[in-house]
Design a protein around this nucleic acid. Structure first.
Lengths: 156, 156
DNA sequence: CTTGAAAGTTTGAGCTAACAAACTATAGTT
DNA sequence: AACTATAGTTTGTTAGCTCAAACTTTCAAG
């Protein structure tokens, strides 16, 4: 799934959690990681030990967990995927936040790099397209398209 | 992931393989299932035994594997997801067949029912929309949109 | 009717990942 | 300095999935 640095889905979840906690709390502790990932603290402790042995994090006994260079690469890529997928699910498909969050959390681990590149181009195009676009109409429970005022050509 | 009938991703793969082999060969044998899923025949044998004990398939010793009612429900739902996702990846995002196949195989197990419903509406709308649409232009390596000739209104 | 190849099964092992329970270290309070 | 709540770790168990290797059944060809 991920470019270099082969990791399991579970490991990707832990690394992403460390990245997010670092930003939010300035600090990533085992207990918080466990809560963030949704597992018991014993599971998190073991997972972090493995990630340390694999060189993705540094972690002194009873200290904070810190991403290494390679760990940060994996974490940022996964988190980037998460945000792009989330944006697609909310902005383009019009799904509610909580559902989008759930789906993005799962999809981020399994989609190919090719898919992600295309999805990014798709989103860029949708927000830039001079002719118009498509959006979800919650009232009418259907998609709706529109044309911008001053669009004169047939193709762009 | 799936409505009722809780199953693992792996079990869903096996059930889908049985469904497809039934259609293609008229028959689903353990060996063919193993090849289709991409595992050794011992793994397939054990997996089918579990599915039998859970009531998803029937399987006499050294005989063909047959879906039960509930097994068929799971298999058809998963296969339907597969086809919808595949169509989205190819028709909408313009991904090549083999990449789309890979991604659909993974995504079908993890996306929510809400996502699938929306994606189906999205695809229906894209193919029906009277104003125009978006497609991938392989030459120019970008998305392109067009407006149909006789579209007069601003919204539909 | 025997025999060999192909199909199917069983066994024993390994890996990832989760949990609860028991244990140990840390830090803050008094 | 002692004590306690909190954080972190270790241990033992379980579950799911896979594999290779050894074994058994089936079936068709001779």
């Amino acid at each position: 799934m991920l470019s270099k640095h082969q990791t399991t889905h579970s490991q990707q979840d832990y690394l992403e959690a460390v990245l997010v906690l670092e930003k939010e709390n300035g600090d990533a502790r085992v207990n918080d990681i466990a809560k963030s990932v949704g597992v018991g603290k014993s599971s998190a402790s073991i997972a972090i030990r493995n990630l340390r042995e694999l060189g993705f994090v540094e972690h002194g006994h009873y200290g904070a967990v810190v991403l290494t260079k390679t760990g940060r690469e994996v974490a940022t890529e996964i988190h980037h995927r998460h945000m792009v997928l989330h944006r697609f699910l909310v902005d383009q498909l019009g799904l509610p936040e909580d559902i989008a969050e759930q789906d993005a959390c799962q999809m981020e681990h399994v989609v190919s790099a090719r898919f992600m590149k295309r999805l990014i181009k798709f989103l860029e195009f949708a927000s830039e397209c001079p002719l118009g676009g498509v959006f979800w109409d919650e009232e009418r429970d259907t998609y709706v398209c529109y044309i911008r005022e001053n669009s004169t050509e047939d193709e762009t």
